[in-house]
Simulated scan of single mutants.
Amino acid sequence: MVMEPDDTDSIGRAHLQDPAERTHTIARRPPSDHLRGWIRRFWIPVWDVPEGESSEQAVLQYPVCLSITTPAYSRFVGPHPGVSRTVLEGRSWGFGTMFAPAAGAKLLGHPVRDQAGSWCDLDEVPALAGLTGPVRALMAQAPEDPEIHARCSALLEDRIARLGAPDEEDLLINDVVEQVEQDRDLLTVAQLSERMGIGERTLQRLTVRRLGLTPLWLIRRRRLHDASVGLRSVHSLSDLAIRLGYADQAHFGRDFRTSTGLTPGEFAARWR
């Protein structure tokens, strides 16, 4: 088993960015230690796009729910099975929370499969209702100030702390996702099922209910995240395909293009 350091705090793995992009910055904050079962991180983008232009941000989202508050909207976002695309214009900011896999269903009060690929207003999530105004008031003062970020994080953490400690199933779904994300040798649902000590059908029902996604999706998404990193310094597409567990370069190319809209070669060319 090859376990690698937890790199889920690296936005770059999921963000299909162009290295020439200079319109935004992203600050990140870890959650308090006792809330890591519910929160992965906070992220705070600040952007300044020249008048008359726009900047599309494409993200291979992690299998988790998010919240994002900006001056224009405040949303709770379910896991996106494809590529999430957001267009930035003008000068503005966002305050975002990436929740842990277990948090989505607990916050929504129903299976995450009902929210996958969609969003609702933040105020429609009972545990988070009423946060939009205070966060906007704080962020408007100084959107790039780490102290402001800390105060916004504290507001949200106060709400999440009311969930109490994660229960057995919460810990299980967090562990399922962590195993897939960190072990590059996990390439099949059968391997994952054996690792977790539960049947494949039980695993399928668990991930669909708690994440709105299948176990196979988790593995494919991990491979695409790995690909987005590997393509930035790749010398051989065929070698990279093998390292990622694909049968050949053609299968890798089809999977990457279907998911991102770019061929591996087109994405790699951005980084040359």
Score class of each variant (00 low, 15 high):
Asp167Leu: 02
Asp185Cys: 05
Ala161Asn: 09
Asp183Leu: 13
Glu178Thr: 14
Glu181Thr: 10
Glu181Lys: 10
Ala154Gly: 08
Asp183Pro: 03
Val180Asp: 00
Gln179His: 09
Gly164Ala: 10
Pro166Leu: 06
Ile173His: 00
Ser153Leu: 12
Asp183Ile: 13
Asp167Ser: 06
Val177Ala: 06
Asp167Ile: 02
Arg159Phe: 06
Gln179Ala: 14
Glu169His: 11
Leu171Trp: 00
Glu181Cys: 10
Leu186Tyr: 07
Ser153Glu: 09
Arg151Ala: 15
Ala154Asp: 13
Asn174Phe: 02
Gln182His: 08
Leu171Lys: 05
Ser153Gln: 13
Asp167Phe: 03
Leu187His: 14
Glu157Gly: 12
Val177Asp: 01
Ile160Phe: 12
Val176Gly: 00
Ala161Pro: 07
Asp158His: 13
Asp167His: 07
Val176Ile: 15
Leu172Ala: 08
Asp170Met: 01
Val180Ala: 00
Arg151Asn: 05
Val180Thr: 01
Ile160Tyr: 12
Asp185Arg: 10
Asn174Trp: 01
Glu178Gln: 13
Arg159Ala: 04
Leu186Lys: 08
Glu178Val: 10
Gln179Cys: 12
Leu156Gln: 06
Asp185Thr: 12
Leu171Tyr: 00
Glu178Pro: 04
Asn174Tyr: 03
Ile173Lys: 02
Val177Ser: 01
Glu169Trp: 03
Val180Glu: 01
Cys152Asp: 03
Glu169Gln: 14
Asn174Gln: 02
Glu181Tyr: 13
Leu187Glu: 13
Glu181Met: 15
Asp167Tyr: 04
Asp158Cys: 08
Asp183Met: 13
Leu163Asn: 08
Ile160Thr: 11
Cys152Phe: 03
Ala165Pro: 02
Val177Tyr: 02
Cys152Val: 15
Leu172Lys: 04
Leu163Phe: 05
Leu155Ser: 06
Glu181His: 12
Asp183Trp: 07
Arg151Tyr: 02
Ile173Tyr: 00
Leu155Gln: 03
Pro166Asp: 10
Asp158Ser: 15
Glu168Val: 05
Gln179Gly: 04
Val180Arg: 03
Gln182Ser: 07
Ile160Gly: 10
Arg159Val: 05
Arg151Lys: 10
Glu157Val: 11
Val177Met: 09
Arg151Met: 11
Glu169Tyr: 04
Arg151Cys: 09
Ala161Ile: 08
Leu172Asp: 02
Arg151Trp: 00
Arg162Thr: 14
Val180Met: 00
Glu181Trp: 14
Leu172Cys: 05
Ser153Trp: 02
Glu168Tyr: 00
Glu157Asp: 12
Val177Leu: 09
Asp170Asn: 07
Pro166Cys: 07
Leu187Ser: 13
Cys152Ile: 15
Asp175Gly: 08
Ile160Trp: 12
Asp170Cys: 05
Arg184Glu: 14
Glu178Ala: 15
Ala154Tyr: 01
Ala165Gly: 03
Asp185Ile: 02
Leu156Tyr: 06
Arg162Asn: 08
Val180Asn: 01
Asp175Trp: 11
Glu178Met: 13
Val176Leu: 03
Ala161Tyr: 10
Asp185Met: 07
Leu187Phe: 11
Ile160Lys: 12
Asp167Asn: 14
Glu168His: 04
Leu186Trp: 08
Asp183Gly: 06
Ala161Lys: 12
Asn174Glu: 02
Ala165Thr: 13
Ala165Lys: 11
Arg159Asn: 06
Asp158Met: 10
Ile160Glu: 11
Asn174Ala: 05
Arg184Gly: 12
Pro166Tyr: 08
Leu156Glu: 02
